[in-house]
Every structure is written in C-alpha cells, then in structure tokens.
Design a protein around this nucleic acid. Structure first.
Length: 244
DNA sequence: AACCAGGACGTGA
DNA sequence: TCACGTCATGGT
C-alpha cells in the first residue's frame, strides 16, 4: 500500500513546530559525547542549525561512544547513562577489541549505574560482535534501509536505538522517535497517543527534507521540550502545551 | 517514599 | 497485533 500523502497543513504544522522549538531552546548540538568529546577543529553547519561541527565525520572512538550511549540511555536518564560511559572509559572499555575480550559480567559491573545492566551488557556484546562483521565504514557506505534492517536484527536494538545509531553515529537521515515525541505530538492533537513507531517516524520523514542536521536537531529539541513539559505523570490529558 | 527516566523483549490472549 | 510484565539504578 502506498503511504498517505500528508496534508499541506500537517507539513506546515510540523515545520512550524521545529521553528518554535529552535527559537525557544536554541540549537542542542546532539549527540552528547562526554568522554571522547567533539572535535572543535572545523567549521559549523552551513544552515546554522548547529553550534558544533556536524559536517565533519565522527572518528571511530566517538562513533563507538555514541553507540554505547544509545544503549545505556534506553529508558534511562542521561545522567545515569553518562556515568556508566565514564565508568567504561575508566576501565579502558570504550574500545571494540577490549569489549570483545572482556567478560560480560565485568561489562555489567562497569555499566551498573545505567540500570538494566545485565540486559545492556548483553546488548553491548551483541553490538561489538556485529561491528566485527559490519564496520562503521562499511555501514556508512551502505543503503540506509539496509543498515536499519541489519541493526534491528541485533538483540537489544529496537527501532529507536537503531535510528539513534543511524542518525548520530552513522550520519544517515533517519528520524528518531521517542516517548517524548509521541507525547508531544499526541498532546498537540496531531496523532493518537497509541500511534506506532513507524507511523510517527514516517510522518516526520514525509514532511521534512531528508537532512541529517535537521533530523538531529529536531529530535534533540523534542526531548528538551518533553523534559520541560511532558514528563509522564505531571502532565494531565487536558494540559496541552502548544508553545514553550 | 513513590515516581520517573531519551526502550526492548518475551509472553499470552 | 497488542497489552502487559520484566529488567534496575539514581535523582526528586
């Protein structure tokens, strides 16, 4: 079946929301890379979306740190995830080879602060096994849909984590949907609360130009906005925030 | 002291 | 398909 052609007003709404969020919060410059850090060497994005240097390919250490971060922050606040990243770094474990050679129990111990540490340790093991077959450079060259399907075959990698890896580590234009995205869009009355992941993802991708910097910034802004106004409990159903 | 946080998976209906 | 239980630490 062909995908629904979104209405013009829907396209305007989604694009408008981006402008409002960007004006309110400013560029977020995701993905955060607390250990390897962002190289401050180059120029900034042409369109001015970003404070950082997003046209420069990330180095392998940064790519791996981003990938580990996407797993560690699954249903977990970034504070706890980044503490775990720091702990991994202190053990010299932000390294594919080291992660392969290290027992799963020891990885679990290092990432304890992120919660779900047994599951996440397994996922990390699955990931580095995957990366031995498909290197970052290989994945970067491949078709986006192919890469996404490969990532989704890894146990522990679901749609959001796969899209985060694509968008932030591999710089492929794949829009990331998270819980905040769903709450915000439902709160605005654009979609139902129960809308499934792929439908919401397709909605954004069908009304936005396929641009890595735009997708990165939009997702980051939705999370920022969601943290402020769409935490799970406090916001009741009738409590719809249209503008930050 | 409950409640929440940038999910994913297994299970039974 | 889908609703629900499970996995877990640390901050408010």
């Amino acid at each position: 079946m062909g995908k629904e052609q979104p209405s013009m007003t829907l396209q305007k709404t989604v694009r408008n929301l981006y402008r409002v969020l960007l004006n309110s919060y400013g560029p977020q410059g995701w993905w955060p890379v607390p250990v390897a850090g962002d190289d401050q060497s180059g120029s900034c994005d042409k369109r001015g979306y970003h404070p950082g240097c997003f046209d420069i390919p990330r180095n392998k250490a940064q790519q791996l740190e981003i990938v580990l971060g996407t797993v560690l922050t699954q249903n977990t606040n970034w504070r706890n995830a980044s503490t775990a990243l720091r702990s991994l770094a202190d053990d010299g474990l932000i390294s594919q080879q080291r992660l392969r050679d290290t027992k799963i129990e020891q990885i679990a111990l290092a990432i304890r602060s992120a919660g779900y540490y047994n599951q996440k340790a397994k996922t990390i093991k699955n990931l580095v096994r995957f990366l031995k077959r498909f290197s970052f450079r290989t994945l970067e060259r491949e078709n986006g849909r192919t890469v996404r399907d490969r990532l989704l075959q890894i146990k522990g990698i679901g749609p959001e984590t796969a899209d985060c890896i694509m968008l932030y580590a591999l710089k492929k234009p794949s829009f990331v949907v998270d819980a905040y995205t769903r709450r915000i869009m439902a709160g605005l009355g654009i979609v139902e609360e129960t809308v499934d992941y792929e439908t919401l993802k397709d909605l954004f991708e069908s009304v936005l130009e396929s641009d890595v910097a735009l997708f990165q910034e939009y997702h980051a802004l939705l999370v920022q906005h969601g943290k402020r106004y769409y935490s799970r409990k406090p916001h009741g159903k009738g409590d719809v925030i249209l503008h930050p």
